[in-house]
Design a protein around this nucleic acid. Structure first.
Lengths: 196, 196
DNA sequence: GACTATACGGAGCTAGGATTCCGTTTGTCA
DNA sequence: TGACAAACGGAATCCTAGCTCCGTATAGTC
């Protein structure tokens, strides 16, 4: 982010600081990949091998830390979407489904982004606004093509995609190990398909 | 519940106690119908016009209070299902859809039960185990009929209904006022329909 | 009207977890 | 090798929300 860049009169960021920032993010990724979104700042610090104070030096608060993860994840989503758009495959609906499946798989090991998509996560989500906008822009392109191809139901709108992702996320909780979110997603994808 | 019944040697429950219990439940219903599940015990007490201590006299803890609401709600769901089963309509899939729509509408004004269905709500849900079992029993009957009638996809299992309800609940958050859970539910119902 | 088991009220206690503060350490530059 | 700004560590602090405690009030009974 530009806030981290040095201007001509400032010193460059110290090497240890840069390293610690990476370690903190890595620790947070690791913890959020297994646990619920109630990961604690102290745990992140411990796993990263730094003090809590250092975590707060790099991230204003917990929302900012989670926000950084959300931002990474949405950047990944955007890249995936961009590839699908650029590939311009003959079956755009299949491409859209595939993107949604892969995104869901990513979300299944990222409780931070799941939380951001679901209730209460707005503050973390605010750190990924640009990525989210790009996400919608690209989604609309793909949805438009799939609809034009006649494989996606005509009344489907790209705006519904975040809602769908949220719904799928809600079925991924570690507390419900016997729920099969893949199955659930397929149900929804079938619902999106144009009727014969 | 039987725990409240008097045995021959005990005095009956005092009238003010009974009245207060009702007031507390009413206040809780009211608050959970508008707010998120983070309603506070003090707020419930204030709206009910009693002290917090009184709330705790009637409900061991917050989970127990929410559990009482969940129990009520599932009893309502069960009654609805039972009616559908008894009616034995010619189109059981349509009946199932209608039940799911009506249940969803109830859930949209009951954050307590939404919470119980979603992550973290297990402890409150534990107060409605009997109702939940009956719910599954009745759901299986209706699902069986709909599948037999050929209108529900053959690979659909009644076990998936709670997962679906959870997904729909996740889209009802007051923080996402522009999401249309009815629309989302229809998508899923379409996904459940047998392919032509 | 008096008696007592119940119930009530709400100030205050507690625990968990985010965040701050400040004395110490360490890169970086000259 | 100093000198010093930048970074660090982690004990201490703050805050919130659930819950307890105990002195007071009252329904039910004789």
């Amino acid at each position: 982010m530009s806030a981290e860049q040095t201007t001509e009169t400032e010193r460059p960021v110290r090497a240890d600081a840069r390293r610690n920032r990476m370690r903190i993010l890595e620790a947070a990724r690791e913890l959020f990949s297994h646990e619920r979104p109630d990961v604690q700042m102290d745990d992140v610090a411990r796993l990263a091998g730094v003090g809590v104070g250092t975590v707060y030096r790099h991230f204003r608060d917990k929302h900012a830390l989670m926000g950084a993860l959300v931002r990474e994840r949405f950047a990944e989503f955007d890249e995936r979407l961009r590839e699908a758009v650029d590939a311009d495959a003959p079956d755009p609906f299949a491409a859209l489904c595939e993107v949604l499946r892969t995104n869901a798989a990513s979300l299944s090991e990222d409780a931070a982004t799941r939380y951001a998509l679901m209730s209460g996560g707005e503050r973390a989500f605010a750190y990924a606004i640009e990525e989210a906008e790009e996400f919608m822009r690209l989604s609309e392109i793909l949805v438009g093509r799939a609809r034009a191809a006649g494989s996606l139901r005509v009344d489907f709108d790209a705006e519904e995609i975040p809602m769908i992702m949220c719904g799928v996320c809600s079925t991924m909780d570690p507390g419900k190990p016997d729920w099969d979110w893949r199955r659930y997603l397929e149900l929804i994808l079938d619902g999106m398909r144009a009727r014969a």
